[in-house]
Amino acid sequence: MNRLAYNKLVDRFFKLAALAATIVGLVFLFTLVWDIAHDGAGRISWSFLTSFPSRRPERAGILSALVGTIWIMGLTAVFAFPIGVGAGVYLEEYTKKKNLITRLIEINIANLAGVPSIIYGLLGLGIFVRALSLERSLLTGALTLTLLILPIIIISTREALKAVPFSIREASYALGATRWQTTYRQVLPVALPGILTGTILALSRAIGETAPLITIGALTYIAFLPESVFDPFTVLPIQIFNWVSRPQKGFAVNAAAAIIVLLVLTLILNSIAIYLRHRFQRRIRW
C-alpha cells in the first residue's frame, strides 16, 4: 500500500472514531431521557403533583417541593437580575479605563464562576444562616443561589451590552444625554433580550442546584407550604435526592417522576431563552 492510500485510510478511520465520540454523548442523552421516562412517566398524576411527601411511596407527592422551587426561583430572579445587570452595566458602560479595581472585579468574577456550588452552600451557612440569623429560610436559599448565579448573569449582560453598536451611544450623547439616560433609555432596551436570555439560563441552572441548599440546611421532608420568606422549605432536587437515597423501589419511581417534572421546568426555561434569542435577533438589523 502506498503512502497516500495509507494516509487516506488513517483519515477515514479517524473520522469514524471522531464521529463515534460525538455520537456517544447523544446516545447517552437519549438513554438517560428514555430510562427516566420509562421509570417515572407512569407515576405522574394530578395527585402526585398536589400531595405532600409521605412515608408510603404510592401516596407521596411533590407539592411542597414544587411550591418551594417556584418560591426560590422567583426570589432568586428578583435578587439576581437587578444586581447582575447593575454589575454588568457598571463594568461595560461606566469604566472607560481599565483601572485596578475593575481589573480586580473582572478576575474575581471569572474565578467565582468556577467555584463549586457546594462552596456557596458553606458561604450561605456561614453568612446568611449564622451571621445574619436568617436560619434555613427561603430567603437564605434564594440569597445563596443569587450569589451562585450572579457571575453568569454579569458575564451574559456584558456580552449583550458589547453587542450594542457604539453608534447608538454616540447618537444619544450627541443630543446631550447623560451616561445613565443613554444606558437606560437606549442601550439597555436593545441589549435586553440578550440579558434576559442569560438570566433565564442562569435560573435554569439554579433550579437544578441541590448541594448548596442541602448545605444551608434546607429540609428534606416538609409537609406544609411556606407562607413567608422566613419559612423553611424544600425544593424538587432535594426531594429527588431524598427519594433516590431510599432503598424501596417505590421511592425510586417517585424520584424518576419528580425528575420528569424538574426536566420539564428546565426545558420550559430553556425554550423561553431560545425563543427570546431568536425572536429579537431577527428584528433589528443595523
Binding site: F241, L262, T266
Partner: peptide, 19 residues
C-alpha cells in the same frame, strides 16, 4: 450536546445509581 451540560446533577446521580 449542550443540553447534557444543562441537566441537573441530581438527575445524573439517579442515572448513575439506578441505570
Amino acid at each position: 450536546l449542550e443540553v447534557l451540560a444543562g441537566i441537573p446533577t441530581v438527575v445524573y446521580g439517579y442515572f448513575a445509581l439506578l441505570f
